[in-house]
């Protein structure tokens, strides 16, 4: 497992943000880890541990105060096309139909959408299970369906890397479980390097190859856990002893006091 080639590398990354009153907050401190090619990495931690900062660093939306974030051994100095992002809220555009939302990144970047692009968008809608909804208005869709549209939108430019910032945390519990399995299916059909941010322990264990457990304020890597559960994973995975043992272990990690 350790022989995998890394796609994303964090090396001693420190991130501080200036506040309006002049003081600084350290969001991340000495963060070092790699993400391998087509690896599914979950980042788990309480609120305020800088999880979303990790995502924004990879996306090139912000740059580290110290250390480097690199993709394919190149330091990230600007936003990159080969990254798809799915946010906690679907944030679809109400003035476009579903297909228009999926093709929006192309329209936004190049100003036009070709017939071939639309065909590709339809394929993606089929992939996320929304073939029949291409011309629906987005406010006619449920929250889970809207998030499927957001996933299709993130996949439009065929990115190598998929960044997901608590994508299912705004959904109800049943839809959330369903979306987890859907994501695994989509990921097996379109392998991507995935960074998946969550604060749900079962979700992280079910989905990920590895889990990074973070500490809060400042965010540090507390533990990196290999999830050696067989794939493909299914509902049966949830009742495996190894699944529960791992979840319990992480729970113990998160709920003991941090010794600095």
């Amino acid at each position: 497992m350790n022989e995998r080639t890394h796609v994303i590398r964090f090396a001693n990354v420190e991130q501080t943000f200036g506040r309006d009153d002049g003081s600084a907050v350290t969001a991340l401190e000495e963060v070092t880890f790699d993400i391998g090619r087509h690896e599914f990495l979950a980042v788990l931690g309480p609120s305020g541990c800088g999880k979303s900062t990790l995502l924004r660093l990879i996306a090139g939306l912000i740059f580290p105060t110290r250390g480097t974030v690199s993709i394919y051994n190149m330091a990230v100095t600007e936003p990159r096309d080969e990254i798809g992002i799915v946010f906690q809220r679907p944030t679809l555009l109400p003035w476009f139909d579903v297909l228009g939302n999926v093709t929006f990144p192309l329209r936004h970047k190049y100003g036009r959408v070709s017939a071939a692009d639309k065909a590709r968008a339809r394929d993606l809608l089929a992939l996320v299970g929304l073939s029949d909804f291409a011309s629906k208005r987005v406010d006619e869709l449920s929250g889970g369906m809207q998030q499927r549209v957001a996933i299709a939108r993130a996949l439009l430019l065929d990115p190598d890397i998929l960044l997901m910032d608590e994508p299912f945390s705004a959904l109800d519990a049943l839809t959330r479980d369903e979306m987890g399995f859907e994501l695994l299916r989509i990921w097996s059909e379109r392998p991507k390097t995935v960074l998946f941010i969550t604060h749900s322990i079962p979700e992280a264990v079910l989905l990920a190859d590895r889990i990074i457990v973070m500490t809060p304020r400042p965010g540090r890597v507390r533990e990196v856990i290999d999830v050696n559960l067989a794939r493909p994973r299914s509902i049966a995975t949830l009742s495996e002893p190894a699944f529960n043992a791992l979840a319990n272990h992480i729970r113990g990690q998160l709920f003991t006091r941090v010794v600095a």
Partner: peptide
């Protein structure tokens, strides 16, 4: 405007 869409726009360098 939702901040996420601004980030999406910036990530696309539009």
């Amino acid at each position: 405007t939702p901040e996420e869409l601004i980030e999406l726009s910036r990530s696309l360098r539009a």
